[in-house]
């Protein structure tokens, strides 16, 4: 490590040329920080969850979607990063994402889920909602378009799967009365918020139609040209006297049927679906984090790895799991 320098938040930047002028490699990694990174960013010692060895700390993707002529229709980046507090306390990442294109190539389906922290098995709820939910939704879209889609039935079906999985898990864990529990009791062990976005990959006048349905406080945004962050759902906790952590979450099914929010996203813009780990520091999108994400996401980052590094920026006291899936339409030549 001779010649290395420690930066203010602990990342070690190695000046390659000084170390060995004949070395035939280059590159460096330095993590992102917005404003004051906080003590946790450099001092947290990440430890594993003794019950979660196969639960990855960070997952990421970076892909392009092509049309029949192998031309790019859109770029997709996704990352789910375990939060500093979960790293410090040795608990698994409870966020999850899923995305897939329908088999007819017409739609991209995105799911982002945030397992409710108080449930020991909530990451399983998030997995089902994000991955299985997206699979179910993509399959169902072959017969019905998003305009006429039976969203309430779909959300209920996802909830049922989570509930079933929860009971099975509890039975495996030796909980005698797992079958007799109410859904509310099951939800104390595993629950998740989820947001689904369905993007029409065939643009109308250049713009892609987007349908968004959510349960709980996961949010969808469009990063408009000029760097304006436009939320597709009400921003949470506005006007509350003190912070409250209560959320709507599956397998509890909302009392009112979910109503899709519609928008469009065009080349030069991005649709970003995110959990509150990144939505909270983004706030209304007008502060330092909004500026940062505008700067780095006005065009698609080069790779999923780079996108994950953006998602994992440090900022004092924001230590929750972070997940984002972003969609950038590509202009047709």
């Amino acid at each position: 490590m001779a010649g290395s320098t420690e930066t203010h938040h602990g990342a070690v930047a190695v000046p390659v040329a000084d170390a060995d002028p004949t070395a035939d490699w280059r590159g460096q990694f330095e993590s992102f920080a917005v404003g004051e990174p906080g003590r946790a960013a450099s001092l947290v010692v990440p430890v594993p969850d003794p019950d979660g060895w196969d639960r990855r700390d960070t997952v990421l993707d970076g892909v392009a979607l092509l049309d029949g002529a192998k031309k790019r229709v859109a770029e997709v980046r996704a990352a789910s990063v375990r939060g500093l507090s979960h790293r410090a306390y040795g608990t698994v990442r409870q966020d999850e994402y899923g995305f897939r294109r329908t088999s007819d190539g017409r739609h991209l389906v995105i799911g982002v889920a945030d397992g409710v922290s108080s449930g020991k098995h909530s990451h399983r709820a998030a997995l089902i909602a994000a991955r299985k939910g997206v699979e179910m939704l993509a399959r169902a879209l072959r017969s019905t378009g998003p305009e006429t889609f039976p969203w309430a039935d779909f959300v209920r079906a996802v909830a049922n799967r989570i509930e079933r999985s929860g009971r099975d898990r509890l039975i495996t864990k030796g909980v005698a009365d797992a079958e007799g529990m109410s859904v509310r009791e099951v939800a104390e062990h595993l629950a998740t918020t989820v947001l689904y976005a369905v993007v029409d990959l065939v643009p109308v006048n250049g713009a892609h139609d987007v349908h968004v349905v959510s349960v709980g406080d996961t949010s969808a945004w469009v990063l408009r040209a000029g760097g304006r962050w436009e939320p597709l759902e009400a921003v949470k906790n506005d006007g509350a006297e003190l912070h409250s952590s209560s959320v709507q979450a599956l397998p509890m099914v909302p009392g009112t049927a979910p109503v899709p929010v519609r928008t469009t996203v065009a080349p030069g813009e991005a649709l970003v679906v995110m959990t509150d780990g990144i939505g909270d520091p983004l706030g209304h999108g007008t502060g330092a984090v909004g500026r940062f994400l505008t700067d780095v996401w006005s065009t698609p980052p080069a790779s999923g790895l780079e996108f994950a590094a953006h998602v994992g920026f440090s900022r004092k006291s924001f230590d929750d799991d972070r997940t984002a899936v972003a969609f950038w339409p590509v202009a047709r030549a």
């Binding site: 912070h243 909270d280 502060g287 330092a288 900022r315 006291s317 924001f318």
Partner: peptide, 9 residues
């Protein structure tokens, strides 16, 4: 900072 909400105890 006007819109971001770090949580304090």
């Amino acid at each position: 900072m006007e819109s971001e909400k770090a949580k304090l105890l």
